[in-house]
Design a protein around this nucleic acid. Sequence first.
DNA 1: ATATAATATTAGGTAACTCTAATTATATTT
DNA 2: AAATATAATTAGAGTTACCTAATATTATAT
Lengths: 217, 217
Amino acid sequence: MHSLTEENYLKAIYRLSQSGNLKISPTAIAEEINVNAASVVDMIKKLKEKQLIVYDKKLGASLSDHGLKIAIDIVRKHRLWEVFLLDKLGYSWDVVHEIAEQLEHIKHEELADRLDRFLGNPEYDPHGDPIPNAKGEVPSVANTLLSEIEIGQSCQLAAIKDTSAVFLQYLEQLSISIGTRIKVLEKIPFDHSIVVQIGKENKTTVSKKLADSLLVY
Amino acid sequence: MHSLTEENYLKAIYRLSQSGNLKISPTAIAEEINVNAASVVDMIKKLKEKQLIVYDKKLGASLSDHGLKIAIDIVRKHRLWEVFLLDKLGYSWDVVHEIAEQLEHIKHEELADRLDRFLGNPEYDPHGDPIPNAKGEVPSVANTLLSEIEIGQSCQLAAIKDTSAVFLQYLEQLSISIGTRIKVLEKIPFDHSIVVQIGKENKTTVSKKLADSLLVY
DNA sequence: ATATAATATTAGGTAACTCTAATTATATTT
DNA sequence: AAATATAATTAGAGTTACCTAATATTATAT
């Protein structure tokens, strides 16, 4: 069996690889989970011995088949619990993540499947992230940023690239949630700010940084 | 903050005191949570320093006000999660306990209250144990054993005193669950076995040991 | 190509929780 | 009351996961 800490390292490596990180270095992992790089080196050694990852100083770390399976399983549970907390317990977007960080480590073979069925087999979590199915297959995901949408075009929010509380609270303030229709009205050359219309609301200006955190289709 | 391990020790002390244990000794705690008595002595020292328990070699351990509050909170969460697992996820009686052992340690102020509301504010868990409310008040509980019921009398199962899988599976086999009506038909002097009628079924003989594990009203 | 900066690694240590074995204290028998 | 059994405690050590500080390696810039 693998410990909670091991699971968190595997998840971190998975997330880094998903966000297109070419080389997953000890420092990158250290930043991801807020530990010292020296600790990461220790854990890399351990996970390598357990054959959950492959590590090469040049190429960085990557998950083995077994490691990937575990990581996807954690992510699946994390996202299912998020749906539960939001849909069933009425939690708000921005709190859900930290509780799911704890719930994802609850162990029981049937648990994820039962939860999945209970929630109506959702494909995406409250942040728009795809929920892997029981086989570990991951639904496809939008890969266009709001910042890439042309002037005059409309799109819908599919997912977000940041889950920090400040970010989620700001989205709430802007009345933006998954599925919200956004029309790009103008792009400011000076700082790449974008003037948008959110749903049926009046127009607002959002920063490049925000537009780079929103995935749309 | 208190660790998962500390919570488990507090819960153990609470459970021992609830089951009418006069003196809660290191050995008693050690047996309750399957650790070595020497480890318990260490932890007692720690919990005493944190003022979560009071300990006296003669009188044994007991919870302080603060310790009691924490213990009741854990028990509350444990039992609410049990209801969730049984009612919502369709788990069977005998599995529910071990998963709730993990879930009870999930931390978030509002969690227990939200779960409670979602489940419809249940007063008893699947084993018939009372669920403390948000204020820490514990609903009253039956305290008559099936073995104490007179011949000819009927009663209903209120709660059980054992949560082991073998016990729960045997109950299931006998079609006994919380609320089941049981009539005492005969008592065998030789070994104190009891002949009972379970619900509308034919009569069955159950051992003294079983009759001592069933709380009725 | 060398100096400088950044990263990776090793060495040594700490905290939490566990254990076994040895010791001391308390009960129970005889 | 002495002998014996049981329980409580202390001492010493192991494991996991973390840290800091020192060193080695690799990349970047001049």
